[in-house]
Simulated assay, not measured.
Amino acid sequence: MALWKVMYAGWEMECCGDPFSVGDEVSWPLSLREPEPADTDLSTVEGPVERRDVEMEGICWVIRSGSLSALWPGEVPAGKAVDTNPVRLTGLLEVDRHGPGPRELPPTTGTVRRIQLVTSGYRFDPAEAAYERVPGARWLREVPTCPKWFDSRAPYGKRAPAAGDHYRSESGVLVDLEIADG
């Protein structure tokens, strides 16, 4: 058995998810997303890749490691694009019900061993006219069950955001998912 960290974004749960509890068996389509500066809990997956041409989405890759299957939307390292060549990719494993090709990907099945509610810090960036996640501003709280709804509203009401405005928001759950090795 292998234990993997999987992020389940709040918006994914609110849209199409079913709440789950510690000890439940779940089956999810997963993506291994290229890491961003604010990402933590990255996974390194090593195994063969398969090329997928997804209608209207272009080329994607599926990497497999034991019973784990994950979509990799990025580039595969040069010289490693043959199905039989194992590759080593590092990124954030996340539940992906809306990305390129999740309906074509066999879901990964495992047992939930731990659930942590993720609260992230955001700061308004006037150059982007949007709130950006602040690297390192993240808090985890262990919970027995994943909520269906998350507190993600900005606290500034109807006024326009100003440079430097910041807030904390529940952004999803981090799951320890136990998956069979083979």
Rank of each mutant, 00 (worst) to 15 (best):
Y8Q: 05
A9I: 02
G10H: 06
W11L: 01
E12Y: 03
E12T: 14
M13D: 08
E14R: 09
G17W: 11
G17I: 07
D18F: 10
D18L: 14
D18W: 09
P19I: 08
F20N: 05
G23K: 00
G23Q: 04
E25M: 01
S27A: 15
W28A: 01
W28S: 00
L32T: 10
L32P: 10
L32F: 00
R33P: 03
E36G: 04
E36Q: 15
A38E: 15
D41N: 13
T44Q: 10
T44M: 08
E46V: 12
G47W: 01
G47N: 03
P48M: 09
P48A: 09
P48H: 07
V49T: 13
E50N: 08
E50W: 01
R51E: 15
R51W: 03
R52I: 04
V54W: 03
V54H: 11
E57S: 14
G58Q: 13
I59H: 08
I59K: 12
C60W: 03
C60S: 10
C60P: 00
C60G: 06
C60I: 11
V62H: 04
R64N: 06
R64A: 13
S65G: 04
G66D: 06
G66H: 03
G66T: 08
S67R: 14
L68H: 05
L68M: 02
S69G: 10
A70K: 08
A70F: 08
A70M: 05
P73N: 07
V76T: 06
V76E: 00
A78W: 09
G79T: 02
K80T: 15
K80Y: 12
A81L: 11
V82K: 13
V82F: 12
T84M: 13
P86A: 07
V87M: 09
V87N: 04
V87A: 14
R88T: 15
R88Y: 00
R88F: 03
L89P: 02
G91T: 06
G91W: 03
L92D: 09
L92S: 14
E94T: 06
D96I: 11
H98L: 14
G99S: 09
P100I: 02
P100C: 13
G101N: 03
R103M: 00
R103F: 05
E104D: 14
P106D: 09
P106T: 07
P106K: 06
P107D: 07
T108V: 02
T109H: 02
T111C: 03
T111D: 05
T111I: 12
V112Y: 02
V112A: 02
R114L: 13
R114N: 12
R114Q: 14
I115E: 10
Q116M: 10
S120N: 12
S120E: 15
S120L: 14
G121W: 05
G121C: 08
Y122W: 14
D125F: 00
D125P: 04
P126Y: 05
A127N: 08
E128D: 13
E128T: 07
A129C: 01
A129I: 00
A129L: 13
A130C: 08
E132K: 15
R133E: 15
V134N: 02
P135W: 07
P135D: 10
G136W: 01
G136L: 09
A137L: 06
R138T: 15
L140Q: 01
R141M: 07
V143A: 06
P144C: 11
P144S: 12
T145R: 15
C146M: 12
P147S: 10
